[in-house]
Amino acid sequence: MSKTPLSDQKRFEQYERRLKKEKQSIRVWQVFICVFFFAVWEMSSRFQWVDPLLFSSPSKITNLLVKKFTDGSLLLHMQVTLFETVAGFLLGTFLGILLAAILWWFPKVSKISDPYLVILNAMPKVALGPIIIVALGPGYFSIIAMGAIISVIITTIVVYSAFEGVDENYLKVMNSFGANRYQCFKEAVLPASFPTIISTFKVNVGLSWVGVIVGEFLVSQKGLGYLIIYGFQVFDFTLVLSSLMMIAIFAAIMYQLVERLEKRLIKQ
């Protein structure tokens, strides 16, 4: 009998070790793939397996990034794009949630607007770009509008269906206490939809980057999108790929922030 607790403890330690090992192995693989990818890229560029003019190389990209960082020119473009993306993301997401709330509040409005939402959702929003730029002028506003418009309709549709999908019995509980519609929304419908809202955040992080980069392509003044289109025009693919690299890093950071928000909002 006295032996059992000791061996139980031992088994638990074994389990812990196995868990740790598994975690380490996954990390090792992730780092390996990263290193392998850049190494192969660098080598194939150096040995001319691929066209270095087209595919550039990690070392050239690093050199360019360092140079552009030190002379400060990259910082400006990064700031502009980041600001536009975050603004577009917030605007699109919150406008979408607001519209969803309005549709939930007025069921008749929702029924009337249903076919229009379907059409608006199916329409490629970036095709509106030229009109937006002419209407709002070639600057921040039209690019932010592009970042927002690309995500607002799909957010509305997804969040509204989450509002509608909330278990009616929660509302029954609320109503049995005499709750009004606002209380039902605030106490039951909105919190029950947080998981869906967070996943639209995740989708919208990606979407707003698309909107903003396309907007910058069209406006061609500042930002990482402008650098990409400029690099393309002068056939400087090192510049194109450096900008792409920066976008990848920022998109990953934004995604991480959303995940952190998810953990805070959804405790249970």
Binding site: D167, N169, Y170, K172, V173, M174, F177, G178, A179, Q183, E187, A188, P191, A192, F194, I266, K267, Q268
Partner: peptide, 23 residues
């Protein structure tokens, strides 16, 4: 109701005071 329909994002205390809270 047939099931408890406690709000999973509220603590037990917050769930129990829901009625007076709404009123």
């Amino acid at each position: 109701l047939q099931q408890d329909y406690l709000f999973p994002w509220k603590t037990i205390e917050q769930n129990v005071v829901l009625g007076p809270y709404i009123q």
